[in-house]
Design a binder for these strands. Structure first.
Lengths: 140, 140
DNA sequence: TATTGTTATACTCTATAACTATA
DNA sequence: TATAGTTATAGAGTATAACAATA
């Protein structure tokens, strides 16, 4: 049990970039974007949001979120509702089709990552499993 | 030391996506793309490559790599050389400016990640440090 | 006036299809 | 013909600036 192990941020950064790239390239051909997936997950997890809230939460501009929601709407993954108390506000919601896509996407990615994991030693897998909660806290 | 800890691929996938997103949003405004960075790193690590090799290694199409190299060239981060034995071949190389950019980028990201790490407990940091080599092997 | 959201415009990044040049 | 690479075209995804509607 190491008391104070040095963690090299540059190495972790590169590892995260490479892992993400690997995961992305194992995607189904028509996978949605990172922001689209993150937005749908948020809507699933936390319920309907205003457009402005979504843009801030996802770290994109308001126009970018307008367009993202338009794409999600066009694909039937999200829809909009009016706010009864403020005529300016748009409430974005995930649709059942959007929820199904998230479920399917999780299954595909799990499968892909599982395929990568079989090439890893049990020890390595155990180390990653042990660090996963810490990584989740780091990712906030 | 757990003998057989279950590692949930879906959780790891989401953690990687969120970490990547976090790292990306902490970037300097004019950061190069994931593929551009990965390509430059490869050229720095392994020396000059053909365009086709780069495209295959980075998991993008040949036209996409043509355009990426054109952008890198325009920004002075890479250049092209002819192959003396095959007139069709283009050899792509990282320039000194490209190497400097990689160095600077590593420093910036390290700083950003370090800022995130101060909010993490020493135990969590140690767990991640312990898992880092395994993550690097997973990312191949 | 301030807030919420959209429209206009431009650039990066990617893909597929069609093409050119060399082997 | 096959291989290496480019050009043409289209769409996603992002940004900033200007605008419209509501509060």
């Amino acid at each position: 049990m190491p008391a104070k192990t040095a963690l090299d941020p540059a190495r972790l950064t590169v590892a995260v970039e490479r892992l993400f790239s690997l995961l992305r390239h194992g995607n189904p051909p028509n996978d949605i974007s990172l922001t689209a997936a993150s937005t749908l997950r948020r809507l699933e997890r936390e319920g309907p949001h205003r457009l402005t809230e979504l843009a801030a939460a996802e770290g994109v501009t308001q126009p970018a979120m307008t367009q993202l929601v338009q794409r999600l709407e066009r694909e039937g993954l999200a829809d909009r509702a009016a706010d009864s108390t403020d005529g300016r506000v748009v409430l974005v919601r995930v649709t059942p089709a959007g929820q199904e896509l998230l479920t399917r996407r999780r299954a595909v990615r799990a499968e892909h990552l599982a395929a990568l994991l079989v090439e890893l030693s049990d020890d390595d897998e155990a180390l990653i499993a042990a660090a996963l909660p810490a990584l989740e806290r780091l990712a906030k």
